[in-house]
């Protein structure tokens, strides 16, 4: 195992490349990210299939970029839809900008079709699974399908998880508006067609919607609640032309200790996932993660 990044960069951007064929089966996004980073950062560069480029000037580590480019160009741009989701646990508009710029640069496109923001400054800990054996888990054991089955209509609502508003308060909404404001700039410049937001309750969504110059048109809720979306949220979305979509992501994509095991001395600033599909044909052609990280404050250079 040869770690690809050294501590000479203050900031690094790591791109997993297209991961849809890495390991098939039902996998969680945190498992996908972990495995994608592992391949990117720790694969033996002498093995044929591993194509890792290191852009020294920008501090970028990119895996299988050529394959990704092929996937993005095999269809005309108007025939495909590119969606992305930014996972942010820190209040920083700079991170939003870094993320969107990295997305556009690495995918080499002038615009993406939608970007959804998941902002969880007080991420519920323990929402991520231990990923040490993520790969081993990726084949589903036959015995216990119920455990793997999301979107249960029978299980009680995880009411222990308080709403976004309750957990993040008024200041959380203020911060969110600022972060969203950075995305709006990209939308106004036609670099993002459609904006979305994840995990908000109706109250927070209404608050954000009220002041938005580019109104969100996607609201993501966790898949586990897809059969019983709160009525207020449903009504608000219906009244304001907001698509209610599902997601299966934890609030904290990768805990610090897991990332620092992969990239010692660095901490994650932001991460994002993109997915590319062929419009009107339901065919997924690419999916990958991009992570922005910086040298940990306490790490010695």
């Amino acid at each position: 195992m040869i770690p690809c990044i050294t501590k000479k960069y203050q900031n690094v951007v790591i791109s997993t490349g297209n991961i849809i064929n890495n390991e098939l089966g039902q996998r969680k996004s945190n498992e996908e990210l972990y495995d994608g980073l592992k391949i990117t950062l720790h694969s033996d560069p002498n093995v044929d299939r591993v194509v890792v480029e290191i852009d020294e000037r920008h501090g970028r580590v990119q895996h299988a970029t050529q394959e990704l480019t092929n996937r993005l160009t095999e269809n005309q741009r108007f025939e495909i839809s590119i969606g992305a989701k930014i996972f942010l646990n820190t209040n920083s508009t700079v991170y939003i900008e870094q993320a969107v710029e990295a997305l556009l640069t690495i995918l080499n496109v002038t615009h993406v079709d939608n970007v959804v923001l998941a902002y969880h400054p007080n991420a519920a800990s323990g929402t991520t699974l231990p990923v040490a054996n993520a790969t081993a888990e990726s084949t589903t054991p036959t015995a216990a399908p119920a455990v793997k089955s999301p979107c249960s209509e029978a299980n009680p609502t995880p009411s222990s998880v308080a709403s976004w508003s309750l957990r993040n308060g008024a200041s959380g909404v203020t911060d969110l508006k600022q972060l969203y404001g950075s995305l709006e700039q990209y939308a106004l410049n036609q670099k993002i067609t459609q904006l979305g937001i994840a995990d908000l309750d109706a109250e927070a969504l209404a608050e954000l919607h009220k002041t938005a110059s580019v109104a969100p048109t996607i609201a993501q809720v966790n898949l586990s609640t897809c059969c019983r979306v709160p009525t207020e949220l449903q009504e608000f979305c219906a009244a304001h032309d907001i698509q209610l979509n599902t997601h299966g992501d934890p609030e904290l994509l990768l805990p610090e200790e897991q990332f620092s095991a992969l990239a010692p001395g660095y901490t994650i600033d932001w991460s994002l996932r993109y997915q590319v599909h062929v419009r009107c044909r339901g065919v997924l052609t690419a999916k990958g993660y991009i992570v922005g990280a910086s040298r940990s404050p306490n790490a010695s250079a």
């Binding site: 089966g25 999301p150 898949l223």
Partner: peptide
Amino acid sequence: VPLIRSYLQSMEVDTD
């Protein structure tokens, strides 16, 4: 079934 579930997680699917 797991393959389909995995696919669905990568698509934009409305809640209903």
